[in-house]
Protein backbone atom coordinates (compact mmCIF):
# COMPACT_ATOMS: atom_id res chain seq x y z
CA UNK A 1 0.00 0.00 0.00
CA UNK A 2 1.45 3.37 -0.92
CA UNK A 3 0.97 6.06 1.62
CA UNK A 4 -0.27 8.78 -0.66
CA UNK A 5 -3.70 10.23 -0.23
CA UNK A 6 -4.57 12.21 -3.36
CA UNK A 7 -6.75 15.28 -3.35
CA UNK A 8 -8.81 16.48 -6.31
CA UNK A 9 -11.19 19.35 -6.82
CA UNK A 10 -13.53 19.05 -9.80
CA UNK A 11 -15.47 21.60 -11.80
CA UNK A 12 -19.21 21.60 -11.32
CA UNK A 13 -20.67 18.48 -12.98
CA UNK A 14 -23.62 19.05 -15.30
CA UNK A 15 -26.95 19.31 -13.49
CA UNK A 16 -29.60 16.67 -14.23
CA UNK A 17 -32.94 18.23 -13.34
CA UNK A 18 -34.97 15.09 -13.96
CA UNK A 19 -32.78 13.21 -11.55
CA UNK A 20 -33.24 15.91 -8.90
CA UNK A 21 -37.02 15.80 -9.30
CA UNK A 22 -36.86 12.04 -8.98
CA UNK A 23 -34.99 12.42 -5.68
CA UNK A 24 -37.67 14.89 -4.56
CA UNK A 25 -40.32 12.26 -5.19
CA UNK A 26 -41.80 13.90 -8.30
CA UNK A 27 -42.93 11.28 -10.78
CA UNK A 28 -44.84 13.28 -13.35
CA UNK A 29 -45.54 16.78 -14.71
CA UNK A 30 -45.06 19.48 -12.12
CA UNK A 31 -44.51 22.89 -13.64
CA UNK A 32 -44.53 24.97 -10.47
CA UNK A 33 -42.28 22.51 -8.71
CA UNK A 34 -39.79 22.88 -11.53
CA UNK A 35 -39.81 26.65 -11.08
CA UNK A 36 -38.93 26.05 -7.45
CA UNK A 37 -36.09 23.78 -8.54
CA UNK A 38 -34.70 26.45 -10.87
CA UNK A 39 -34.73 28.86 -7.98
CA UNK A 40 -32.85 26.38 -5.80
CA UNK A 41 -30.25 25.83 -8.49
CA UNK A 42 -29.77 29.58 -8.79
CA UNK A 43 -29.39 30.03 -5.06
CA UNK A 44 -26.82 27.25 -4.68
CA UNK A 45 -24.86 28.23 -7.75
CA UNK A 46 -21.22 28.99 -6.96
CA UNK A 47 -21.59 27.97 -3.32
CA UNK A 48 -20.78 24.27 -3.64
CA UNK A 49 -17.37 22.67 -3.83
CA UNK A 50 -16.61 19.36 -5.48
CA UNK A 51 -13.81 17.72 -3.53
CA UNK A 52 -12.55 14.14 -3.50
CA UNK A 53 -9.68 12.46 -1.67
CA UNK A 54 -8.61 8.91 -2.43
CA UNK A 55 -5.91 6.32 -2.11
CA UNK A 56 -5.13 2.99 -3.69
CA UNK A 57 -4.88 -0.14 -1.59
CA UNK A 58 -3.06 -3.24 -2.83
CA UNK A 59 -5.15 -6.26 -1.89
CA UNK A 60 -2.00 -8.36 -1.60
CA UNK A 61 -0.62 -6.17 1.20
CA UNK A 62 -1.59 -6.22 4.86
CA UNK A 63 -5.23 -5.26 4.71
CA UNK A 64 -7.24 -3.00 6.97
CA UNK A 65 -9.87 -4.92 8.94
CA UNK A 66 -12.92 -3.84 6.93
CA UNK A 67 -11.41 -5.36 3.77
CA UNK A 68 -10.90 -8.63 5.59
CA UNK A 69 -14.53 -8.72 6.77
CA UNK A 70 -17.01 -11.44 5.88
CA UNK A 71 -19.33 -9.14 3.99
CA UNK A 72 -20.81 -11.09 1.09
CA UNK A 73 -21.44 -7.91 -0.91
CA UNK A 74 -17.87 -6.78 -0.45
CA UNK A 75 -16.44 -10.15 -1.46
CA UNK A 76 -18.66 -10.38 -4.49
CA UNK A 77 -17.76 -6.89 -5.60
CA UNK A 78 -14.04 -7.46 -5.23
CA UNK A 79 -13.87 -10.95 -6.68
CA UNK A 80 -10.93 -11.11 -9.08
CA UNK A 81 -9.55 -7.73 -8.06
CA UNK A 82 -6.00 -7.10 -6.96
CA UNK A 83 -6.56 -3.67 -5.51
CA UNK A 84 -9.15 -1.09 -4.54
CA UNK A 85 -9.47 2.64 -4.80
CA UNK A 86 -10.90 4.02 -1.61
CA UNK A 87 -12.39 7.48 -1.81
CA UNK A 88 -14.36 10.13 0.01
CA UNK A 89 -16.25 12.89 -1.78
CA UNK A 90 -18.24 15.92 -0.64
CA UNK A 91 -20.02 18.93 -2.08
CA UNK A 92 -19.25 20.89 1.08
CA UNK A 93 -20.98 22.49 4.04
CA UNK A 94 -22.77 25.20 2.04
CA UNK A 95 -25.28 22.61 0.82
CA UNK A 96 -26.14 21.82 4.44
CA UNK A 97 -26.39 25.50 5.23
CA UNK A 98 -28.92 25.97 2.44
CA UNK A 99 -30.98 22.91 3.36
CA UNK A 100 -30.95 23.93 6.99
CA UNK A 101 -31.75 27.58 6.27
CA UNK A 102 -35.08 26.62 4.76
CA UNK A 103 -35.86 23.79 7.18
CA UNK A 104 -37.82 26.18 9.35
CA UNK A 105 -38.71 28.77 6.73
CA UNK A 106 -39.78 26.76 3.70
CA UNK A 107 -39.84 22.97 3.90
CA UNK A 108 -40.73 22.77 0.20
CA UNK A 109 -37.50 24.51 -0.69
CA UNK A 110 -35.60 22.50 1.87
CA UNK A 111 -36.83 19.23 0.33
CA UNK A 112 -35.88 20.45 -3.12
CA UNK A 113 -32.42 21.56 -2.00
CA UNK A 114 -31.95 18.23 -0.29
CA UNK A 115 -32.76 16.48 -3.57
CA UNK A 116 -30.40 18.81 -5.39
CA UNK A 117 -27.65 17.95 -2.91
CA UNK A 118 -28.22 14.22 -3.42
CA UNK A 119 -27.99 14.61 -7.16
CA UNK A 120 -24.89 16.80 -6.85
CA UNK A 121 -22.92 14.35 -4.75
CA UNK A 122 -23.83 11.43 -7.00
CA UNK A 123 -22.83 13.48 -10.03
CA UNK A 124 -19.50 14.24 -8.37
CA UNK A 125 -18.92 10.54 -7.69
CA UNK A 126 -19.78 9.71 -11.31
CA UNK A 127 -17.35 12.34 -12.53
CA UNK A 128 -14.62 11.04 -10.27
CA UNK A 129 -15.29 7.44 -11.23
CA UNK A 130 -15.07 8.32 -14.94
CA UNK A 131 -11.85 10.23 -14.45
CA UNK A 132 -10.23 7.36 -12.54
CA UNK A 133 -11.47 4.78 -15.02
CA UNK A 134 -9.93 6.75 -17.87
CA UNK A 135 -6.65 7.24 -16.02
CA UNK A 136 -6.37 3.54 -15.15
CA UNK A 137 -7.46 2.33 -18.59
CA UNK A 138 -4.28 3.86 -19.95
CA UNK A 139 -2.32 1.64 -17.58
CA UNK A 140 -4.32 -1.41 -18.69
CA UNK A 141 -6.20 -1.58 -15.41
CA UNK A 142 -9.95 -2.04 -15.17
CA UNK A 143 -12.01 -0.16 -12.57
CA UNK A 144 -15.31 -1.48 -11.23
CA UNK A 145 -18.37 0.48 -10.23
CA UNK A 146 -18.19 2.11 -6.78
CA UNK A 147 -19.97 0.78 -3.78
CA UNK A 148 -20.30 2.22 -0.31
CA UNK A 149 -20.60 1.15 3.29
CA UNK A 150 -24.29 0.52 3.79
CA UNK A 151 -24.74 -1.32 0.46
CA UNK A 152 -25.98 -4.87 1.09
CA UNK A 153 -24.26 -6.37 4.10
CA UNK A 154 -21.23 -4.07 3.83
CA UNK A 155 -21.77 -2.34 7.16
CA UNK A 156 -21.49 1.29 8.14
CA UNK A 157 -18.97 0.23 10.77
CA UNK A 158 -16.32 0.33 8.04
CA UNK A 159 -16.63 4.13 8.12
CA UNK A 160 -14.30 4.77 11.03
CA UNK A 161 -11.51 2.76 9.43
CA UNK A 162 -12.08 4.41 6.06
CA UNK A 163 -11.75 7.77 7.77
CA UNK A 164 -8.49 6.72 9.41
CA UNK A 165 -7.14 5.74 6.00
CA UNK A 166 -8.27 8.77 4.03
CA UNK A 167 -8.05 11.52 6.64
CA UNK A 168 -10.89 13.33 4.86
CA UNK A 169 -11.30 15.71 7.82
CA UNK A 170 -8.04 17.28 6.82
CA UNK A 171 -8.13 16.66 3.08
CA UNK A 172 -11.66 17.68 2.11
CA UNK A 173 -13.29 18.88 5.33
CA UNK A 174 -15.44 15.76 5.75
CA UNK A 175 -16.08 14.52 9.28
CA UNK A 176 -17.71 11.53 10.92
CA UNK A 177 -19.86 11.87 14.02
CA UNK A 178 -20.65 9.54 16.89
CA UNK A 179 -23.45 7.76 15.06
CA UNK A 180 -21.34 7.19 11.90
CA UNK A 181 -23.05 10.02 10.06
CA UNK A 182 -21.02 12.28 7.86
CA UNK A 183 -20.91 16.08 7.94
CA UNK A 184 -21.29 17.69 5.44
CA UNK A 185 -24.22 15.37 4.80
CA UNK A 186 -24.01 15.43 1.02
CA UNK A 187 -20.93 13.24 0.99
CA UNK A 188 -20.02 9.71 -0.01
CA UNK A 189 -17.32 7.24 0.94
CA UNK A 190 -16.90 4.30 -1.40
CA UNK A 191 -14.49 1.85 -2.91
CA UNK A 192 -13.91 0.59 -6.42
CA UNK A 193 -12.19 -2.69 -7.22
CA UNK A 194 -9.35 -2.57 -9.73
CA UNK A 195 -7.92 -5.44 -11.73
CA UNK A 196 -5.31 -5.83 -14.42
CA UNK A 197 -7.05 -6.70 -17.65
Amino acid sequence: MTSIIYNKTFDEPEIDKREILRYAGVRGEAELVEALLDDCIRESSGRLSYRVCYREIDLNSTLPAFLRSDSYTLKKNLRGCDGVILFAATVGIEMDRLINKYGKLSPARSVMLDALGSERIEALCDTFEDAIRMEYAELGIGVRTRFSPGYGDFGLSAQSEIFELLLPEKKIGLTLNKSMLMSPTKSVTALMGISHI
Binding site: A24, G25, V26, R27, G28, A30, L32, V33, L36, S106, P107, A108, V111, M112
Partner: peptide
Protein backbone atom coordinates in the same frame (compact mmCIF):
# COMPACT_ATOMS: atom_id res chain seq x y z
CA UNK B 1 -53.45 9.19 -4.43
CA UNK B 2 -50.01 10.03 -5.81
CA UNK B 3 -51.19 12.74 -8.19
CA UNK B 4 -49.48 15.44 -6.10
CA UNK B 5 -45.86 14.99 -5.08
CA UNK B 6 -44.12 15.94 -1.88
CA UNK B 7 -42.67 19.29 -3.03
CA UNK B 8 -46.10 20.26 -4.36
CA UNK B 9 -47.78 19.27 -1.12
CA UNK B 10 -45.31 21.40 0.80
CA UNK B 11 -45.67 24.40 -1.49
CA UNK B 12 -49.41 24.29 -0.86
CA UNK B 13 -48.84 23.94 2.86
CA UNK B 14 -46.60 26.99 2.82
Amino acid sequence: NKTVYLPGLLMSAE
